[in-house]
């Protein structure tokens, strides 16, 4: 059996349908009318040990709900879940020994005590022997630089510091599976890089299985080889990350800042066939869209520089969200990538 396996996993949230105010509440006691919202529908997911899976989709697609069912926080309305041989919501305590969870928006540290004491408390809760505890902290220290965080009170940590401490807290007991829900949200670039490097190291050295939800293409590209796309509670794609990118994330945009408005835009287009020119907000700005498999970025830069006086430029990679958005709009056919 695979490490994580779900069959027909479904979660329906039931909201009472009641009128406003006290009268509405009282009336509801007798009518008992509800609306059902299907957050996750019939999800079959199989994850092998050692895999790193990105789980993506727009807000409200059911990402967090899935993670919460896999970790045993939520009980599925129907279907089966197994993680490392246990049913998470039924055998919570055994399950807790196998998993580590990090929520980007929230912290499991106690906010009123120093990080050191939070970690020591988790050591007691997980019954980690002293020597192993010290060794683990030591091994985390290089990338997470815990030393400077240990004496800080939980609520005084900055977002980046908190994430580093939370990662350590989630991994103290060396879990087989690590769930990360938006781990890099709101972090600055240098912390993001450090977090990603840490997770990569974890996968490489400990063989930890990682499942991560994110909006950041960088996270996915750095860490994962497999991507699962979910929309309206259903899995709409499950497969290789590179295939998705090659198929859908082909388009690049370059944005140029020029000294003067380009004299003859058509001449640029003529030098690199297949590109699309877009006027910027000001006449001195110019956008160029192109398919990276047909035109190289270098060619585009060369073309623009020949025809105009360039001050500055940058490239936009398409965010995975754009890809996903296109999928919903029916502009992309996912079967093309799976083939």
């Amino acid at each position: 059996m695979a490490l994580i396996e779900t069959r027909g996993m479904t979660k329906v949230f039931r909201t009472p349908l009641k009128g406003p105010g006290l009268a509405g509440s009282v009336k509801h006691l007798f009518t008992r009318r509800f609306t059902d919202r299907v957050a996750v529908a019939n999800v079959d997911l199989t994850i092998e040990a050692g895999e790193a899976v990105a789980y993506v989709g727009p807000n409200g697609a059911g990402k967090s709900t899935t993670i919460k069912m896999l970790t045993g926080i939520l009980v599925p309305t129907s279907g089966e879940v197994h993680a490392n041989g246990v049913v998470p919501h039924k055998q919570r305590i055994q399950n807790a020994r196998n998993i580590g969870v990090v929520f980007g928006q929230r912290t499991q540290l106690w906010w009123d005590i120093p990080v050191r004491e939070s970690l020591a408390l988790l050591k007691e809760i997980h019954r980690i022997p002293q020597d192993r505890y010290e060794a683990t902290l030591q091994s985390f220290n290089e990338l997470l630089e815990l030393g400077e965080l240990l004496p800080v009170i939980g609520r005084r940590l900055s977002l980046g510091q908190r994430m580093r401490a939370d990662l350590a807290a989630a991994l103290l007991h060396d879990p087989k599976i690590l769930y990360l829900d938006e781990p890099t949200i709101g972090l600055d670039i240098s912390v993001k890089d450090r977090v990603r490097a840490f997770i990569k190291q974890l996968i490489a050295e400990r063989g930890t299985t990682v499942m991560l939800t994110t909006h950041d293409l960088g996270d996915i590209e750095d860490i994962c080889r497999r991507i699962v796309i979910i929309d309206e509670g259903r899995i709409i794609y499950d497969g290789d990350l590179q295939a998705v990118k090659d198929t859908f994330a082909r388009e690049r945009s370059m944005h140029f800042q020029l000294h003067h408005p380009p004299a003859d835009p058509a001449a640029i287009a003529a030098r690199v066939p297949g590109v699309k020119l877009v006027a910027g907000e000001k006449p001195e700005q110019l956008g160029v869209h192109f398919d990276r498999f047909e035109v190289s970025a270098a060619d585009v830069v060369a073309a623009v520089m020949t025809e105009a006086d360039v001050i500055d430029f940058h490239i936009d990679e398409p965010a995975i969200e754009d890809v996903i958005r296109k999928v919903y709009a029916g502009q992309l056919d996912l079967s093309a990538a799976e083939a």
Binding site: K68, T71, G72, I73, R92, I93, Q94, A96, R97, I99, V101, F103, R106, Q108, L122, I125, H126
Partner: peptide, 14 residues
């Protein structure tokens, strides 16, 4: 507030 989440993720009775 959903704060119960973390208590469900630790190997001690919630």
């Amino acid at each position: 507030r959903g704060e119960l989440d973390f208590m469900l993720l630790r190997p001690v009775s919630p």
